[in-house]
Amino acid sequence: MKEELIISGRMNPHVDPILNTWGWEIAFYLFVGGISAGLLFFSALYVIRKKEDIYPAAVKLAPLFVPIFLVLGLGALFLDLHHKLYFWRLYTTVRLESPMSWGAWTLMIITPLSIVWAASFVKEIWPKFNWWNIKLLNDIEKIVIKNRVSIAWPLIVLAVVLGIYTGILLSAFNARPLWNTSILGPLFLTSGLSTAAALIVWLSKSKIEREIFTKIDLLLIGIELFLITHLIMGFLAGGQVQVESAQIFLGGAFTTYFWVFIVMLGLIVPAVLEVMELYGFHIPAFAPSMLVIAGGIIFRFLMIEAGQITRYLY
């Protein structure tokens, strides 16, 4: 038997008795960052492949959500800072070893780019909108529309960086064994792409587009299930702290949340509904989409909470 007591009564707020210094703000940001990355990825991809008219919701409508998502996400990140007036310090230095520095700079570039990108599609959704007759805005719009393909290339790269970074932010922390796995980057990227595909299915009015994005989402859900299996296998094959991390989902505190809300309701049930839809059953589009998106949100919240209770033993 081994018992450990802190007898001096260290009760540092948000550190003791269990670490909970990161809360909903980070989880919310990881979700909106992931879905934004996915939406930008699909929009840019189909601009490059010149399929704007076959996939109008993915290329033109969905990116309009991205600036809203990113601004909300940045707002949440700002709320999370405790020394708020010094936030500009992020942009006085580049720290190659710090994932958060990478994230801050990526957001600095991708946020304005996503605004310009989304703005260039506004007239296609609302043809009467004319930027309040301001010449400068109309000129910028013309330039962006003319150079859409050239903008799409850096955008697609940045979208992947943004999506994968939401996982790497956590996986770089060796002190929290549940996060400290290199699968987390690809897993969060896949989850971001999947939630984005689900939102596109929800928004789309075209049968062809709904069908192709349902297939894309199915593929992504398959990859996610594969990555989750390997996440748990990797932990179980690791050292004691990794094995204990896996136990959180295999009988421990978060077992029900993980298997019921993320794996069943967030991945398997929507996948079954999507397959039924492809086989001709009439399934309302919002049902699988909402489940995938809710699963994505719960996954981020759960990883943030569960990761902080895993630690080294000494």
């Binding site: 540092n12 707020p13 948000h14 550190v15 003791d16 670490l19 210094t21 990161w22 999370d80 800072l81 405790h82 020394h83 708020k84 010094y86 936030f87 310090r89 992020l90 710090s98 958060m100 770089a172 922390f173 060796n174 002190a175 929290r176 902080q308 630690r311 080294y312």
Partner: peptide, 26 residues
Amino acid sequence: PEECIGCAACIESCPYDARFTHPDGY
């Protein structure tokens, strides 16, 4: 303190939980 934004990444990264957020934010 004047360079710290209070993001708590360092608190998350410490295997010894030796850090905390000062009431002043850093």
